[in-house]
């Protein structure tokens, strides 16, 4: 019953789209049938390798760099009050700067290739991961660190077996925020200047008045957003299964 209710509105919306667009003669609002045809023609699977794969690769590469650097730098800043104080103005500015404002200058500096896009995605995603890591590392229970020290764990073991696992739930919250931002950055970098990518295809369809293609690209981007978010949740559920179990118990 619940499933039916939850699916009711999405199904109704699609039906509404289908019926209202079926007889549409407006060039901007093509019949859903045509959109689906364009979707199949482009994305199953002609452009999959040439455009979808580059988009997703850039997003994941940027996010991965941001995650690795963010956790490493965040852990260092979280451990050292002095270091955090010293870099605080730079960090505050970096995280408050609307990341999309960096896109024009990144194109000037690094061109419109993959490197430029990955770099700007990584830079903007860095801050949510970094700040969450700082917070998380600071919040690690000192009792656990006493245990680790009294049993003579090496600093590397303390990092791997105590500090990072303890910080993981909050770090994941940061990565999740970063994922949303990475997606925005991916699309905007491709809309601004690119030679391939889903965003690029969608925007160039506008310039050639291939309206069904635009709608198809939009649908694909939407599905991609949903898919990435779902995949992330699966990953999180795996890595943090202990945390989920513990929280549900309390």
């Amino acid at each position: 019953m619940r499933i039916v209710l939850r699916l009711l509105v999405p199904v109704l919306l699609v039906l509404l789209w289908w019926t209202t667009s079926a007889g549409s003669t407006s060039p901007f609002y093509p019949p859903l049938r045509e959109v689906l045809a364009a979707f199949q023609e482009s994305w199953l699977f002609t452009r999959l390798g040439s455009d979808l794969v580059p988009s997703v690769t850039r997003l994941l590469a940027g996010l991965l760099i941001a995650t690795v650097v963010g956790i490493a730098v965040g852990a260092a800043l979280g451990r050292s009050r002095l270091l955090m104080q010293a870099l605080n103005p730079a960090v505050q500015f970096g995280r408050s700067l609307p990341g999309t404002a960096l896109i024009p200058i990144s194109v000037v500096l690094f061109g419109i290739g993959d490197g430029s896009k990955i770099l700007v995605i990584a830079f903007v995603c860095l801050f949510p991961v970094l700040l969450n890591t700082v917070d998380a590392v600071r919040g690690v229970d000192p009792h656990l660190e006493d245990v680790a020290r009294s049993y003579r764990l090496t600093p590397a073991q303390r990092l791997a077996f105590v500090l990072l696992p303890a910080a993981a739930p909050q770090i994941f919250a940061g990565i999740r925020t970063a994922l949303g931002i990475a997606f925005i950055m991916m699309v905007v970098t491709e809309l601004y200047a690119a030679t391939n990518g889903v965003g690029f295809v969608t925007l160039s369809a506008r310039n050639s008045f291939d309206v069904p293609q635009m709608w198809a690209g939009t649908v694909l981007l939407g599905l991609l957003g949903v898919a990435l978010s779902a995949l992330f949740l699966v990953l999180q559920r795996r890595v943090l299964s202990w945390h989920i179990g513990m929280t549900e118990r309390n």
Partner: peptide
Amino acid sequence: PPKEIASVFQDYSRSLMPWF
């Protein structure tokens, strides 16, 4: 911390690693 000494702490809920 010497290797000859092992400790059992007061608050078990905060001395065991919940992720292990």
